[in-house]
């Protein structure tokens, strides 16, 4: 038996690969595939009463989702907030990474460490710190009040979409920095010099050479920001109030207070599908964009 296993092992590269992957595979099956399968099956059930679930398979929950305009608008809002957060993050992180990659000569590592410094504290603490800054009696309002610029605290700062966008942008920015920095740092400076030598202005060089070559990092950054923020639950719950509520908060409510697990599961599945679709679209369009630019 053992000998047979050894023969198989030494002959087959696949066997080697799978045995190396097996711990990770086991974990993924345990914590990803099984819960997802559970979620999918739950989405086909029906909540009859508080304690009772009808297990007859049905698609009705998905129809329910699209019939509830609240859920659809929350889905759109989640995608919109995430999109804005991703855009702001890219627009602010890209120039910083560009600067570090091409202009900082010494201590690049120090720059990166300093930029990612906020990430040494927990996500939750960072969200709370924004509460302190943006709140009615927060740093921002009391400064403006003290300076006599406003007579009443600005209330739209807190418990709003804007508050969620600010907090999420700050919370996830460092994750965009790394892929962007790596893709820019990899660009050989002689490409840029060659493009200048071939008659392009600095501006043209950026769009024809630097940006297309950094696209892998841009895609990485987009996905790394978009995927977690679209489903973020903590920030809207703590900062968003009713205005800044996102779909994930509703899903949580279905599994908790409202106690409609099948509809919650269906909402989560729809959200997952949306993210997968958007990811596919982003990858495809950036690929096309690269071809167009060159």
């Amino acid at each position: 038996m053992f000998q047979a296993w050894r023969n198989l092992y030494s002959k087959s590269d696949n066997a080697k690969a799978y045995s190396l992957l097996s711990p990770a595979l086991f974990l993924i099956i345990l914590v990803m595939l099984i819960p997802m399968a559970l979620m999918l099956s739950f989405s086909s059930f029906t909540q009859v009463s508080m304690m009772e679930i009808d297990f007859t398979p049905t698609f009705q929950r998905y129809i329910d989702f699209f019939e509830k305009s609240l859920l659809v608008s929350l889905l759109i809002k989640s995608v919109k907030i995430s999109f804005i957060v991703t855009l702001i993050t890219l627009l602010t992180a890209y120039p910083v990474c560009y600067y570090i990659a091409f202009y900082v000569k010494k201590n690049k590592m120090l720059w990166l460490v300093l930029l990612t410094l906020p990430f040494w504290t927990s996500y939750l603490l960072r969200v709370f710190s924004w509460k302190i800054i943006l709140g009615t009696k927060g740093v921002f309002n009391s400064t403006l009040l003290g300076a006599g610029i406003i007579s009443e605290p600005l209330t739209f700062l807190m418990y709003s979409e804007e508050a969620v966008i600010i907090t999420l942008t700050h919370a996830w920015a460092a994750f965009a920095l790394l892929p962007l920095y790596v893709s820019l740092e990899k660009i050989d400076f002689s490409y840029i010099e060659a493009a200048r030598d071939l008659g392009l202005s600095k501006f043209e060089v950026f769009w024809k050479v630097t940006f297309p070559l950094s696209l892998p990092g841009v895609i990485g950054a987009i996905l790394i920001i978009f995927i977690p923020t679209v489903g973020d639950y903590v920030t809207p719950a703590l900062i968003g109030g009713t205005e800044g509520r996102m779909l994930s908060n509703m899903i949580q409510a279905y599994f908790g207070k409202i106690n409609n697990i099948p509809l919650g599961a269906a909402s989560a599945t729809i959200m997952l599908t949306t993210v997968i679709l958007i990811t596919a679209i982003v990858s495809y369009t950036t690929k096309r964009l690269t071809q167009r630019l060159s």
Partner: peptide, 17 residues
């Protein structure tokens, strides 16, 4: 970009994309 010169680089710098 305004000079009447062109350069062949040591590593050639052929744009990879």
């Amino acid at each position: 970009d305004k000079r009447p010169t062109n350069m062949v680089f040591q590593n050639y710098a052929i744009f990879p994309h």
